[in-house]
Design a protein around this nucleic acid. Sequence first.
DNA 1: TAAGGCATGTAAGAGGTTACATGATTGT
DNA 2: ACAATCATGTAACCTCTTACATGCCTTA
Lengths: 170, 170
Amino acid sequence: MSLRHALLGLLSERSASGYDLLKTFDTSLANVWPATQSQIYTELTKLAGSGLITVAAEGPRGRKEYALTGAGMAELRQWLTETRPQRNTRSDLLLRVFFLGVLEPAQARAYLTGLIEMSRTEHEQLRQLADSIDWDDGNLSVHGRIALEYGLRFNAMRREWAEWAAEQIG
Amino acid sequence: MSLRHALLGLLSERSASGYDLLKTFDTSLANVWPATQSQIYTELTKLAGSGLITVAAEGPRGRKEYALTGAGMAELRQWLTETRPQRNTRSDLLLRVFFLGVLEPAQARAYLTGLIEMSRTEHEQLRQLADSIDWDDGNLSVHGRIALEYGLRFNAMRREWAEWAAEQIG
DNA sequence: TAAGGCATGTAAGAGGTTACATGATTGT
DNA sequence: ACAATCATGTAACCTCTTACATGCCTTA
C-alpha cells in the first residue's frame, strides 16, 4: 500500500492534479516507485473518498487539484514513523543466478558480464541525472539527492559483485 | 512471470512434489523469490497443463512428484539466455527517504539509524546462514553461495550509505 | 483548424497474499 | 490414539499492467 503514501508525500510538498503527479512519478520517483496513470487516478479517487486529500480547486479540462488534509498528513507521518519498511525481496536478476548451472559455462559468464554492463550503464544514467537536476534546498531535493546516491552506490556494488562472481565461475 | 521459471529451475536439479518445492522456497529461495503454498500449487498445475513439467510419480497422501520435460528445460534455458532481467524498482525503504522532510530532524535521523541497524542485522543473519549450510559442489550450492555474497555486499553497502545519509541530514 | 498536450476515467487480466478447507500417513 | 507432519486444493481480495475510451484547451 505504498502508492497511497507516495501520493500523500508528494501532496505534502504542494497541491497537484493527477496529471501533475503522473509527471512527477515519471521523473523523480520513477526509479523508486513507478506508477501508471491508471493507478494514480484510481488511488486519488480512493484517497479523496477516505478524506486524506481533498479537491482544493478545479481548473480547465476537468482538472482537479488535490490538497493534503490534516488526516492525510497524520497518515503520512504515521507511515513514516510507526511502520517498518519492508525488505526488498524478489530479484529476477538474482533468481537467474541460482540456475546458471543449466547453461554452458560461457553462457553463464555472458550473463554476468551482461550484469556488469547493466550496472555501468545505470550508474552512468544516474550520474547524468544528478548533473541535469538543479538541486535547490527543498525537501525533495535534499532527500532526492540522498536516494540518488543510493542508486550510485548500489550500481557500483553490483558491478563489483558481478565481476567477482564471473571469476568464481570462470 | 518468474515464479514459473523458479519452479522450472528447481525441477531442473531434481524432481520434487509441491510440498518439497515449498520447503525449498522457504529455505534457499526465500531471500530472492518468496512464494506461498497457494501460489506454488496453482502454478504447478498450470505448468503441467502446458507440458513444461509432468507428474513423474505418485506417492502416498496424493503426493505428485513433478519432473521437468524437454519443453520445460528449453523454456528455462530460453528465459536465462534470451530475456533480460528486469530492474528492481519499487523500494518502500527508499520511497520513505524522499519524504523524511515532513518529520522532525530527530525523527528523520532515527529512521536512518533504524536502517543502519536493519542492515547490520540482515548481514549477520546471512553470515550465520552461510555458516549453517554445508556447501557441496552442486550447482545450487555454487550459485547459491554467489547469491548470498550479493546479500552480504548489499547490506554492507546499505549500512554505509545510511551512515552517510544520517550525516547529510544531521 | 489541426496537432499536441492537458486531463480524466474504466475494464480486463496477471501475479501475489491471506485464509479457508480437507484429509492421509507416520512416529511415539 | 494422538500429534505432527505430509500433502493438496480453492476462494476472496489487493496491487499493478495494459489497453481502451473520451474530451477540452492552447498555440501555431
